[in-house]
């Protein structure tokens, strides 16, 4: 699905990612954990195509295509989805209007016919129930007046609507109470299939009780320094990151 090879990226001349490599196959869930400033959100930003970041070397192959060569919108059209850590409020742009525009541009890209208003609204009803999002919120301006939990649910709702191949959840759990966390995780699990994959970026092990990862990676100083299974997350929760830092810094 995605193969990241020796990725180096910097912002304002400061290197944040220093040789990150990762492979994610269809059907897999990967968790990326790590201390603050390790480069977790930078990884999400670089993959989504934020222009502030310069990729200085390395490659990212997404389903046979060079991801780094594509514009942000083309990455999304190819099936990459980023659930934002801080979803943006866009006054005046309604959720449904925005999603229908997105869906139709993706369909056009793929050479498919645009979706009818009727089918689209049926889809909105179906998918909003996946994350228990009040259908009324779907017609409101994007994220305006949404609570923190509603914003995150709205991210997963959008993911459900766009049906991406690879979803990257950037600290989707941060700031969520336990009920919202369960709803969000439940939405992600419902959408999981053999064909798609998920990268969960998180600071806390808590989310991984609900979204069970196949692999857990520790990001530190811009590289993946340790990989394991879900037990690694538990170990990190218990012992913190200092032992890993010490291990790496000693090398």
């Amino acid at each position: 699905m995605i193969t990241i090879n020796n990725l180096h990226a910097s912002i304002d001349g400061k290197e944040i990612l220093s040789g990150l490599s990762l492979e994610v196959k269809p059907g897999e869930v990967h968790a990326i954990m790590g201390p603050n400033g390790a480069g977790k959100s930078t990884l999400a930003s670089v993959l989504a195509g934020r222009e502030e970041y310069q990729v200085t070397s390395g490659s990212v192959n997404f389903d046979g295509k060079d991801l780094l060569d594509m514009s942000t919108e083309d990455r999304a059209r190819e099936g990459l989805f980023l659930a934002f850590q801080y979803p943006v409020e866009i006054p005046g742009v309604s959720n449904v209007n925005f999603l229908r525009t997105a869906l139709n541009e993706i369909r056009e890209y793929k050479g498919q016919k645009s979706i009818s208003a009727k089918d689209f609204m049926a889809m909105v009803r179906e998918k909003s129930s996946v994350v228990e999002l009040d259908p009324k919120l779907a017609s409101r301006s994007v994220n305006v007046g949404f609570s923190g939990g509603e914003k995150k649910r709205n991210e997963i709702f959008q993911m459900a609507m766009l049906e991406p191949k690879l979803a990257i959840l950037d600290e989707t759990d941060s700031g969520l109470d336990i009920d919202a966390l369960r709803i969000v995780a439940n939405g992600v699990n419902t959408l999981k299939s053999k064909e798609n994959a998920t990268i969960v970026i998180t600071h806390y092990q808590r989310l991984l009780d609900y979204i069970v990862p196949d692999f857990v990676h520790v990001l530190y100083n811009g590289r993946i320094v340790k990989s394991g299974t879900k037990e690694l997350a538990l170990e990190l929760e218990e012992k913190g990151y200092d032992w890993i830092k010490a291990e790496i810094d000693a090398q």
Partner: peptide
């Protein structure tokens, strides 16, 4: 950027924003 990250072209994204404004 948010709109583009959902597959909307930059031109359309700006149009949507102007329209909203």
């Amino acid at each position: 950027f948010y709109l583009r990250a959902r597959g909307i072209s930059e031109k359309t994204a700006r149009s949507l924003m102007i329209e909203a404004f």
